[in-house]
Design a protein around this nucleic acid. Structure first.
Lengths: 149, 149
DNA sequence: TGAATTTCCATGCAAGTGCATTTACTTTAA
DNA sequence: TTAAAGTAAATGCACTTGCATGGAAATTCA
């Protein structure tokens, strides 16, 4: 038989779709497993804390977190509850809008981000980056960009 | 003029990683939403039923389903329970291995696959395929292949 | 204005998931 | 051939998620 069969196949769009889901699932679960093995909380916490750190005043409304993370509203609400219980963020009532709260990143949250980053980077390198050179990375990034709003 | 500003950015590996997770998550949740709106069960069921249909005798051991789907062992066990309760598959004791069971695709399961396929295809076209031409699809497929075992 | 609508966030309940363990059988090897 | 180790599948328990709904404040508009 000639050459690697897998790469000679002409993929249709459903093949690409299936592979997108599989590849991203496999790599994500491995990265998460490494982080957990290092004793860190779920990646979702990191994403939320990072959004807070990047924001003006290191604080956001839950509704803003929802938009930036694609989490469902009730999941944002409950994740905040858990992250707050762990001491990484704090909920404060807003002055302007009586319905709203502001989620503030606490110093412990900043510390967690700082501690998690090297482990996160190592995990992504081991499970993702290692498979792609710079050109391939750029191409993948570019193709994926077409799928985003 | 050269391209949209977003695409002039030089992405590093973490950017590509983030975009992989985001793009695949966004598109998946939209496809799932369409299927649900059409009254179909979760995509996970489709995947399992399809693996069964493709198999010799339209039946597999749970442990085989686990390998092919990347579901955890206990999730396979419970998903089978639910799919069986819905009448799409049937569990039968194996003769050869006293520990094992065989999961058989039932006619209703075949019907579900047949009914779901057009809706599934439409959903993927609307949320995924539409964003990529044939060349781009092939390139994406090829890049994603590098991430797989 | 003030009644209806919309937005923000929380929550009760049902269903799904993760983890650890159990049960039952098979394989290995002494 | 029997004890130990390994493999297949299920399950109890705690936690997370999804869905529907709730209450409270803001906004719209007749």
């Amino acid at each position: 038989m000639s050459g690697k069969l897998r790469d000679r196949h002409t993929p249709d769009k459903m093949d690409a779709w299936a592979r997108l889901q599989r590849a991203s699932g496999v790599v994500l679960s491995r990265v998460e497993a490494r982080l957990k093995a290092d004793g860190f909380p779920p990646l979702g916490w990191y994403d939320v804390l990072l959004e807070l750190q990047r924001s003006e005043g290191m604080a956001l409304r839950p509704v803003e977190i929802e938009k930036r993370t694609l989490l469902a509203q009730y999941n944002v609400s409950r994740m905040i509850e858990r992250i707050a219980a762990a001491g990484y963020v704090e909920k404060r009532k807003t002055a302007e809008d009586g319905r709203g709260v502001m989620i503030h990143l606490l110093p412990d949250g900043e510390d967690l981000l700082k501690d998690m980053w090297p482990a996160y980077k190592r995990a992504v390198e081991a499970e993702f980056s290692i498979h792609l050179d710079d050109d391939e990375t750029r191409i993948l990034w570019h193709m994926l960009g077409k799928l985003l709003p």
